[in-house]
Nucleic acid binder design. Structure first.
Lengths: 256, 256
DNA sequence: CGTCACCTTGAGTATTGTCAACTCGGGTGG
DNA sequence: CCACCCGAGTTGACAATACTCAAGGTGACG
């Protein structure tokens, strides 16, 4: 009796339209009108959800679309000149994957997108999106904003990875994730991490052992409650201090 | 007799148009037509060159334009939550500065742009640029490509800073710079670095002493000839190996 | 000719990576 | 049904890369 139920679920997902999508304030321009939503809706295709580990697009495949995450989570990796993989980002519902590939000189995707859990996406064929953006200034503006946000997010990671200690990177990573969960109206203090320790480590430029050690240390400090991939922020104030490297403030408090 | 001469120079710069700018293959869409160039030209303003250290825009100022570098060089920095500065990028002639600020929620510039030497820029007021992009699909596409390239560049830095040794970072940085010089038809083997050691270090997530030490070591290895900010690539093959961390290849060669 | 950035070089240290062993939980197959 | 295996995660010991602190050196510019 489970198979038919799953099929119904899938059908329900595929029938959904932008106009009644709970995420539309996140992935659509704020000022868009109903008729315009319809136009956007017409170019979007919703495929069957990807299983965990499923590949949404692969580095080197011809670039044809960007994707809005509906549910689940995606990681993107690009392979370095030396052959290792670098996790360039994580994408949660309401976020857009593939923006980095738009202007790739080769015309191909410049990274690989992999589902971290069962994940549903909306495909936005880029040619059509671009045409539509020419007609709808608010959509064009929104796309510029999205890409620009991606640039700023990458610059934040850059600065995180380049100038901060391992503790600060982990603390900041968790707080950023928490803010993104909050934005999509989920609990901001009880996070379920869709990615492995190894993915986190790779993304933050750390060894996976370091990530593991720091999470347990934060737990011992009663800043977090960690249970595998479930992480609860128990002391947000302290976590923010850790993110900023305010060792002394905490020390002062402790012997006050 | 120098003042008038400089004034003439400045006037010459300001009178220049996109149509006869040597950089236009780099900063304009490849398929643009003459009439369209004229439209673009009309919205561009060319200000008097910035002196070294001059601020093009400052973090927190209202965002109104992006800038094409005509000559000289620009660095962008953003200040971290803890107050330090992070050098997020360097911009050479033909490159566009300010793309990261387009979608800043506050509507302000999200970083500060500073001239590393005497620098001339073209200002592209963003409202007008956006309107024009709505009319000229090739311009819209070009802007998407530029932003997407910026994302990829940042991701490369991310991976450089997160996963590579100091040697690899410096080697890769020099090679990337060399490629950019080549693209603008300058010598690819004799580089003049417009930025200080400290800027390089900051950008690559290193201490400035480390940068200095590595440059002298590369010089001792006869890979580079370094003289202050003049750097000559003496053994490109070897530099590429260093960029990829092929320690063994070199070691093998040496006792062959 | 002095000052002031900027750069170089040295010595000692420490944060973080590497290697390695072990635990835990889930799924598979005998 | 149980044993086994495998991947993910944890923990420990040790090593090394790169940072910090500190002391010169060099060149430009007033």
């Amino acid at each position: 009796m489970e198979i038919p139920r799953r099929h119904n679920l899938i059908r329900a997902l595929r029938q959904t339209h932008c106009s009644d999508c709970a995420l539309n304030p996140v992935c659509l321009p704020p000022a868009i009108e109903d008729g315009e939503i319809q136009q956007l809706d017409d170019i979007i295709s919703r495929n069957r959800p990807l299983a965990r580990g499923g590949v949404l697009f692969h580095e080197g495949m011809p670039f044809d679309a960007v994707f809005a995450v509906r549910s689940g989570a995606i990681k993107t990796c690009s392979s370095t000149p030396t052959g290792e993989e670098q996790v360039t980002g994580f994408y949660l519902p309401g976020e857009i994957v593939g923006l980095d590939s738009i202007g790739n000189p080769s015309g191909n995707y410049g990274s690989t997108a992999i589902a971290l859990e069962t994940t549903a996406v909306c495909a936005l064929p880029f040619d059509a999106l671009q045409d539509l953006a020419g007609k709808l200034p608010s959509l064009q503006h929104h796309l510029f904003r999205l890409m620009s946000s991606e640039i700023r997010a990458d610059q934040q990671i850059m600065q995180l990875v380049g100038r901060r200690t391992a503790d600060e990177r982990i603390a900041t990573f968790l707080l950023t994730l928490s803010a993104r969960y909050k934005r999509r109206h989920l609990s901001e203090n009880h996070l379920h991490l869709p990615m492995s320790r190894s993915d986190i480590a790779n993304h933050l430029g750390l060894a996976l052992e370091t990530v593991s050690r720091i999470l347990t240390r934060f737990q011992n400090m009663e800043v977090l409650k960690v249970n595998g991939r479930d992480v609860e922020i128990a002391n947000r104030q302290r976590l923010m201090e850790l993110a900023n490297g305010d060792q002394e403030i905490a020390a002062c408090n402790s012997h006050a």
